[in-house]
Write a protein that binds this DNA or RNA. Structure first.
Lengths: 355, 355
DNA sequence: CTGAAAGCGCTAACAA
DNA sequence: TTGTTAGCGCTTTCAG
């Protein structure tokens, strides 16, 4: 334990026999200072465990010190509105410490994210949070940002090949595994099941499919995965394909819908008169799902907690920039399992704004 | 929108034709000021949407402004250590804004909570967080605290008859309902099940039992609740009683363990050679449960997230005291459903300290 | 009852 | 390259 009470610039200046101006220069790596005095000052600060007083800093500077650019899609609203609110509400808590969100939405996942990123890059922010829709294309810009000492936080989806500081998301493999486990436990033994996904090209979707399929084999001996439907997150296409599948194969007992696009699947089940016969494990949560959860067409939904993802991204940024804590290389959060009996506790379903 | 930029005491003083000293007196309800000038100043502050600059306040005062007393049990460690860490870690984020935790543990739930509360009361804190083990006895002290303008936050358990500002917990009824839903969905139709609880005298335990029993009737037609074991959270007693029950009744397929005391239940199941025959829904999470989750003796556990409860209590306090937001009358959080496939994501199981 | 002024720890502008 | 100083918005003390 270096010292009991916290030391300040004043004290450091005294110990180093320099003025506080010089201490400030040393601490902030400014150039107008000789290398040896900087060393000396830094060593003293280190030894005495100097931690800057953020309140004083914020007060002195006046302008926001930690500016977080947020480049996330607008659509699908029910998901990204929550994500945005997580960012905004959490940042407000640290407003007085100089934390500010620069919200820079794009229309949809992958739609103009490079342009958005470039604009944010020009703003000289400390942190950029982004949902990579097309990681391959974005990687160059992410690396450029990190080179310019801008921390990049991927949210909800990842750009694993890039130099991003961290990612905040639900691991898609975990999603697939949970779905498989629930399916294996909920359905009678040796069931036939199928998957409804968006498109194989999307890494997130592909991983969920694969993880589900592996885990399901393992947990449901005798069970069988009899089809994977690629709905391209299009309502009509999804409905048609699922409707056709259920017509061809009367023995299917379960469907894992690995994207948010579960409504057309519910409709197809209904159109075949299979409510109560074919059960769904879905992804995420929005109001329109409630009736299907209540009548057990949807047995459970795996909720990726976008609001909390936004919150956590802000916290990682603030913890790092304000309190000097390291950013963990990834932050995989536990999804919630939504059931009939806990449904009413989720912010998506509630009218009050409570977390 | 009252004004674009935030106004300060200086500006209010100018507008009211008084000095900033007087503004300060008005804003803080100090006595050395005439009623009419106070009114005038307050009106102006109101009109212009004055919000104090917390950084400046913290800087000026120096000492912690928001002191939160935390009177929670030490045992059972696996639960209350998490709760404590939630308080401590979250408070550290707001340290520079003058938030401080006064940690004042008691040995076990209900063991000396009145004395602990009294000691905290003497410290002139702004907030006291407490786990009521014996609400009837504590209510007087809680009311006294609130009268003295100390906000009382109940955590993990409630004192519903008191004037406490709020409670942060998992609603025991929700716990019971989720357990019932999982039991009904996981087990083959019309199963016989039993409950293992602590003691009926504890409100939390009683409510879980009742909620489970009602919901189970409703969701598992033909199923039957064939016993309720009161284990008094004693390992031997619980083992003996469950062992006896499983001997008497060979048809039991499921057990809902509504307290953290699930290990003796697992042992009893093992001793009867019923692994894989009798399935458990348990409560909370600690390392020793892992093998039973992995071999599916425990199908799922309902995790009350003590760490997050501590976090949220701090946030409610800070949001209220620092940012003037109202405290919601209750904050019921969603428990996590722990399964084999998400097990490794929980802080109780991980070695790194990440949330 | 009210006003004036010092000072919290830090940054930034200017002087040397 | 270094030192000096004003001032961020607020609380607090001391004078009036």
């Amino acid at each position: 334990m270096p010292s009991i009470r916290n030391i300040g610039v004043q004290e450091i200046a005294r110990l180093a026999h320099v003025s506080i101006g010089t201490v400030d220069r040393a601490l902030h790596g400014r150039k107008e200072i000789s290398e040896k005095t900087r060393k000396r000052i830094l060593r003293i600060a280190q030894e005495r465990g100097y931690r800057p007083n953020l309140a004083a800093r914020a007060l002195s500077v006046g302008a926001p010190l930690i500016r977080i650019g947020v480049c996330i899609p607008r659509e699908i609203h029910y998901f990204y509105d929550q994500l945005r609110d997580g960012f905004l509400n959490e940042a407000r808590r640290f407003e007085q410490l100089g934390v500010e969100i620069v919200y820079h939405p794009i229309q949809r996942l992958g739609g103009g994210e490079c342009a958005g990123m470039k604009e944010l890059l020009a703003l000289k922010l400390q942190v950029i949070a982004i949902c990579p829709g097309d990681p391959a294309n974005l990687t160059g810009l992410i690396n450029q940002a990190e080179t310019q000492n801008v921390r990049v936080i991927c949210v909800a989806s990842d750009a694993p090949q890039s130099a991003r500081s961290t990612v905040v998301c639900v691991n898609p493999e975990v999603n697939g595994h949970i779905a498989a486990e629930l399916m294996a436990k909920f359905l009678p033994s040796a069931p036939q099941v199928a998957i409804v996904t968006g498109m194989f090209a999307t890494e997130d979707h592909r991983k969920k499919v694969q993880a589900f399929s592996e885990k399901f084999q393992q947990l449901a001996p005798g069970g069988k995965l009899v089809g994977v439907v690629e709905g391209h997150d299009d309502e009509d296409e999804t409905f048609q394909k699922v409707y056709a599948l259920l017509g061809r194969n009367k023995t299917i007992k379960g469907l894992y819908v690995s994207t948010a696009n579960c409504l057309p699947v519910c409709h197809a089940v209904g159109a075949r008169g299979l409510h109560g016969k074919v059960r769904l494990i879905t992804t995420d949560l929005f109001k329109e799902m409630v009736p299907y959860l209540e009548k057990d067409t949807i047995l459970a939904s795996i909720h990726q907690r976008p609001y909390v993802q936004g919150q956590i991204a802000v916290r990682l940024a603030v913890d790092h920039l304000a309190n000097g804590r390291p950013i963990p290389p990834s932050y995989y959060l536990t999804p919630h399992v939504v059931l009939r009996s806990n449904l009413h506790l989720f912010r998506e379903i509630r009218s009050d704004g409570i977390l």
